[in-house]
Design a binder for these strands. Structure first.
Length: 582
RNA sequence: GCGACCGUGGUCUAGUUUGGUCUAGGACAAAGGCCUUCCAAGCCUUUAACCCGGGUUCAAAUCUCGGCGGUCGCACCA
């Protein structure tokens, strides 16, 4: 029975220090993995590649926020409500069901807002049974996918949660960063960091983890201007889309379409979303995942997150699991900032000046104090005037127009009619406007991407394992190998080793076992270049360079190594341009 | 979380049916040495395992129960 790539990669990961189950000596817990020496660097290189493409090249910024946040944050973000499912179980067939869904199915509205015991009462009252086998349902229990933590000592503790996404950090710090970045929009704020979700039954190794690294990129934009000038450089790039419509028709037909066309046809809602989808595709391409093994699947309305208006999941074809999500591209609108604004009471709107101040006709409310005093008394009149000034004038005008009265909510309900209020049209000058920025969010699962990279880099050649990683991802760039361990070759090799270390290259020196065996070891962890020091080196200072891909060798003078290798690792030279072929 | 199958050195595995001969065998890898050779060569030496915990038994890798982990199916995965 032949193993599939997944097993081979897990095996390689364990053997060569890439990735392996965490706390193995205590038996491990599913959903937790550690990165070894090679995996750590590989992951860092992937992250660095992302930074370059999305942050540095786009003039965006990166932050680091906390992993633990107090419960108010997740109350505001909606995670406390939406990330908690109240579950019930069928006592007969042990089917696990969401209690609120069962009630929604029989026509009870807003079931997701009810408490556990209320849900159970409704289940009992309506005699809801297991839809599969008609069995009796057990008592409901809440299950929250967030890890809860206690902040501080037991007595005075405050509830907190480990973040299930990094994004909230950006929303919470938005105001400060917006100011320190001198009030520019669009403003992308990135974060690469650990998150935790208490998954019910994680499987699939590094694909579904309880603790994982996420890249959340929140791009804050003016909702009236969702354009992105750089779109013109990529508008003819093609995207592979699986739109919602196709999925609803039980089809998985992929539409190959240029971003320009997708935007024009409204398939992708805005330029920012489209631009960064192109970038995401390029990103994976640079990581060695071919275009035809990628696609963007539009999330169906019922599978979209509670905050999202449109979502495309970027998926990669994996041999064992088929299309697997590695990134999500969501239009989060102003959902998060709006909620944090309401919950915290802090104004998170931004102010944008108009190009030219505008003259606007504005309805100004003037309470007719004498009439109000007559109807409600002098003391109340002051309070009413005060409340009026704090109310939304647009609403008051509308209601007065439509209904003929406006109900002012104070300690008592006060009915105000047209005779109480003068509406004066005044010409005013507005120099700008305030609004809550909208957010476009590309979000990446680093661990999944790393796994996909391994899967596409994995090769077998002559019964040997080769990790053919893209050049810039290589955790170890150079292997230094003296051909034999005598006659001064190791000494010479160590000299060159030291020289390349000083060039800030990642280099390993290896003198044990035969040369072939050492090449094989280097291949397994994807070392692009092996440098061999032989007897000729002692005579003329030349060394051989061996390419992981072709196994071809070229001979060059060791003096030229720093210069040529630097160019090579920047993709400015091909291997065969490094020196004379052997 | 439920069900089925599974868990032996770093990796892959023999042994489990029928408890004892297992002081657990092999291959590969790794470490040291010899050899000095451009694709896992050879020789010598060494390190190294029955997932964890109860139970049955004179005796458990083997039977049994529980836990943990893995794979698959169901459910879950905004």
């Amino acid at each position: 029975m032949s193993r599939d790539v997944y097993e081979k990669i897990i095996n390689l990961g364990k053997r060569r220090g890439i990735i392996f189950p965490a706390f193995e000596i205590y038996g491990g817990v599913s959903g937790f993995f550690d990165y070894g020496p090679i995996g750590t660097v590989l992951k860092r290189n992937i992250e660095e590649k992302w930074r370059k493409l999305f942050v540095y090249n786009e003039g965006m910024v990166e932050i680091e926020s906390t992993l633990i946040m107090p419960s108010q944050v997740y109350n505001a973000s909606g995670h406390l409500a939406h990330f908690t499912d109240i579950m019930t179980k069928c006592s007969k067939c042990t089917n696990i069901l969401r209690t609120d869904k069962l009630l929604t199915d029989i026509g009870i509205e807003n079931a997701e807002r009810l408490k556990t015991d209320e849900l159970d009462r409704l289940i009992e009252k309506n005699d809801v049974r297991c839809p599969k086998c008609n069995g009796q349902l057990t008592k409901s229990e809440p299950f929250n996918l967030m890890f809860q933590v206690e902040i501080g000592t037991h007595s005075g503790s405050m509830n907190g949660f480990c973040r299930p996404e990094a994004a909230q950090g950006q929303f919470l710090a938005f105001k400060r960063i917006y100011l320190s970045e001198r009030e520019r929009l669009p403003l992308g704020i990135a974060q690469i960091g650990r998150c935790a979700r208490n998954e019910i039954a994680p499987r699939k190794g590094p694909i579904r983890l309880r603790e994982f690294t996420i890249i959340d990129f929140e791009i804050f934009v003016d909702p009236d201007n969702l354009s992105y000038p750089k779109i013109k450089y990529v508008e003819h790039e093609k995207l592979r889309l699986l739109v919602a419509q196709e999925q609803l028709a039980q089809s998985s037909k992929i539409m190959e379409i240029t971003v320009k066309e997708a935007l024009e046809k409204g398939i992708i809602k805005n330029q920012i979303l489209g631009y960064f989808m192109v970038l995401a595709s390029k990103f994976l391409n640079d990581l060695g995942i071919p275009e035809n093994k990628q696609r963007f699947r539009e999330a169906l309305p019922d599978e979209r997150a509670h905050y999202s208006q449109q979502t495309f999941d970027q998926e990669v074809w994996l041999q064992r699991w088929g299309w697997t999500e590695v990134s999500g591209h969501a239009y989060r609108t102003d959902y998060d900032l709006r909620n944090h604004m309401t919950c915290s009471g802090v104004d998170l709107r931004v102010y944008k000046a108009f190009d030219k101040p505008k003259k606007v006709a504005k309805n100004v409310l003037k309470p007719k104090m004498d009439v109000i005093e007559k109807d409600y008394g002098a003391l109340n009149a002051q309070i009413i005037a005060n409340l009026l000034s704090k109310s939304d004038h647009k609403v008051i005008c509308r209601e007065l127009n439509e209904k003929g009265f406006y109900e002012l909510m104070g300690q008592h309900l006060i009915k105000l009619e047209s005779k109480h209020i003068d509406i004066i049209v005044e010409e005013m000058v507005e120099s700008g406007r305030k609004f809550i920025p909208h957010v476009v969010e590309p979000s990446f699962g680093v661990d999944r991407i790393l796994y996909a990279v391994l899967e596409y880099a994995y090769l077998e050649k002559k019964k040997r394992v080769i990790l053919e990683l893209p050049l810039q991802l290589a955790p170890v760039q150079i292997y230094i190998l003296p051909l034999v361990t005598k006659n001064g070759l190791p000494e010479k090799a160590r000299e060159i080793f030291k020289m390349l270390l000083d060039e800030s290259l990642t280099v390993i020196y290896d003198e044990s076992d035969s040369i072939g065996r050492r090449y094989a070891r280097a291949d397994e962890i994807g070392v692009p270049i092996c440098i061999t020091i032989d007897y000729l080196t002692l005579e003329d200072d030349t060394v051989t360079l061996r390419d992981i891909k072709s196994w071809q060798q070229v001979r060059i003078n060791s003096r030229d190594l720093p210069n040529l290798l630097r160019k090579y690792f920047k993709n400015k030279l091909r291997f065969d341009q490094l020196g004379k072929p052997l």
